[in-house]
Structures are given as C-alpha cells and as structure tokens.
Computed example of a mutant assay.
Amino acid sequence: MSLSRDQMLDEMGLSPRWKLRQQPSVARGEKPTHATAATGVPSSTDAPNAGNMAAVIEAPGLSVVTGAESPELIAEFGWDQLRQSVVACRACALCAERKQAVLGVGDEKASWLFVGEGPGAEEDARGEPFVGPAGKLLDAMLAAIDLRRGEDVYIANAVKCRPPGNRTPEAAEMAVCAPYLKRQIALIQPRLIVLLGRAAVQAVLGEEGSLASLRGKTFTYRDGALAIPVVVTYHPAYLLRTLPDKAKSWEDLCRARALMRELAASESATA
C-alpha cells in the first residue's frame, strides 16, 4: 500500500510539517564565490547559476587513486565492466571480510544521485546499498520530495565493500574506490548530487569540514566538462540516532528539490 506524503513525513519523524520556502537566487550578473578545498582561494571559473549559491568547491577527492586496475582503464569502463571489476577488486583490505561488493542501484541515467559512505551488514548480505532501517528512512526521505528508489534516482556509496563493524570508511579506502565512484558519476551524468554524511563529502569534494558548516551551501563537482551541483546532508543512519536533526535534513532535501526545479527551468528557457 502506498503512503501519502504526510504519512512519509510521519515515518521520518517530522512534525509539524515543513513548508518549502522560495530560495533566493543569485542576482543576474552576480558571480558566486569559487574556492578550492585546499586553499579556499577564489578561482576564475564560473559555476552555473544554481540559486542560493554560497560556495563552489573543486572536487579533488576523486582524483587520488590506487587500485587493482588503473584509473585510466576504469575511466573507459561501461556498466558491465564496472560491475565485474568491483567484484574482482582486491585493492584494499576491505575485500577480506566482505560477502559481496556493492556497486550501487537505480536508474543509470538518473537526474538524482545520492552518495552514502559504505555498505553495512544488510547491504553486504543483499548486495544493494541502503537497505534495512537506514534504507527505509532514505526511501521515506525520497518519497517526501516525490522521488522513488530506482525511478530517476541512483544510489551509491563512497566505498563498495563493507568496513568492519560498519565503521566509517578511512580516507585511504575511499581513495582506492574513488575511480569507481568517479566513473559512476561520468556514466550517470546526474543533474544533482546529494551527499549523505561526512565520508561522502570527503570522497566526492575532498572537503573535511563538519556537516554543520557544509549544510545550506551548494557546491559543484567538476570532472572535465561535467559541472554538477552538490547538496550536503546527514546520513540516514546518523538521523536514526539523532532524531532532532531529521528536521535539518528535511530542510536540505527541500533545498535540493528547489535547486532541481531551478535547473529544469533554466534548461527549458535555453532549449
């Protein structure tokens, strides 16, 4: 039985209801500030007008790579080759205790890409990201903004193998998996990326700040000609432990939805 939007919000523990406010747009002709994660020094490269643009960060996190197969080779893979390579990968110690590698799931031409940290025990057993309680909450979060798993949505993780004890992936482990995530993004070419948790932020943007300092901003993931807006929010597993922050995550999702609508309107106007 399908649930109404209000029922989905109840599932997320959000009450009273949050209403979407109009997001301020960057004034015409005004250039948002650009910075690198390493220096914070403004650059001369302009990002797309994404509305409420507070900061744009180049994404060095996906450029540091070591692995069983070269990043140059992985960069040429299609989906089938990518799956086979992830299954065969033995580039770091995470492979030793895994039951199976978890590449990702969903629409391979999705507009929305959600990136988490790494598989947990249930994900490792089933071979799909975000199942179990955290997955149920993520599905409710998606439904609250009129999205559904697998329909114009792709879900991935920073690492493809379960860290022992469901711990947070280490920087070196994310660096090993980086070519796979980078290739997923290149194949999907989403219109918007939503990062779930600090590890995902570090993996994709190379940014190590607190979630509190990163929320409410729109970043940009860059890879060659790709320039994709990025929104940061909390990981569903964290929200299950910290119920008051569910309301903050709802604000982030509303911002993401408003940004996607702005992008769609801008594309229609220039078509």
Rank of each mutant, 00 (worst) to 15 (best):
I185W: 05
P133A: 11
G135P: 00
A143H: 11
M174W: 01
V201D: 12
Y180K: 05
A186N: 14
L192H: 15
L147P: 09
A158W: 12
M141K: 09
R149W: 02
L192T: 04
V194I: 15
K182N: 02
L137N: 12
Y154W: 09
V153P: 01
I193K: 04
I188E: 03
A200Y: 07
F130E: 13
A144V: 08
D152N: 12
E173V: 00
R183V: 05
R149A: 09
L137P: 10
A140S: 14
L142G: 13
R198M: 03
L142D: 15
I188Y: 02
V153W: 08
G150D: 04
C161M: 10
V153T: 02
I193R: 04
R149S: 12
K136E: 15
G150T: 03
N166F: 01
V201I: 14
G132Q: 06
R167V: 00
L142V: 12
L142K: 13
L187F: 02
N157F: 00
E170W: 05
K136L: 12
M141G: 14
E128H: 08
R198C: 03
R167I: 01
I155T: 13
Y180H: 12
P169D: 05
G135R: 10
D146W: 05
A199K: 11
A143Q: 13
A134H: 11
I193Q: 12
I185S: 13
E128L: 11
A178M: 02
G132D: 07
D139Y: 00
L137T: 10
G127R: 12
R183A: 11
A203E: 10
R162I: 09
E173L: 00
G165A: 01
L187D: 06
V159G: 14
R149L: 07
D152E: 06
V201P: 15
A178H: 06
I155C: 14
A203K: 11
E170I: 03
A203R: 00
Y180W: 06
L192Y: 15
A200D: 14
A156G: 15
A158Q: 09
R167C: 00
R149F: 04
C177F: 10
E151K: 13
L187K: 07
A178V: 05
R149H: 11
V176W: 00
K182A: 11
A186T: 09
A175L: 04
P190Y: 06
I193G: 01
L137M: 12
M141T: 07
V176L: 02
C161V: 06
P179D: 05
T168P: 00
I155Q: 15
E128S: 04
F130A: 08
Y180C: 08
L187H: 10
D139T: 03
P129T: 08
I185V: 15
Q202R: 09
D139V: 00
P179E: 09
A203T: 05
L187Q: 11
L187S: 08
A171D: 06
R191H: 13
M141F: 10
A156P: 02
P133E: 11
L195V: 04
L142F: 12
L181I: 14
A144Y: 08
D146I: 01
R148I: 04
G197N: 04
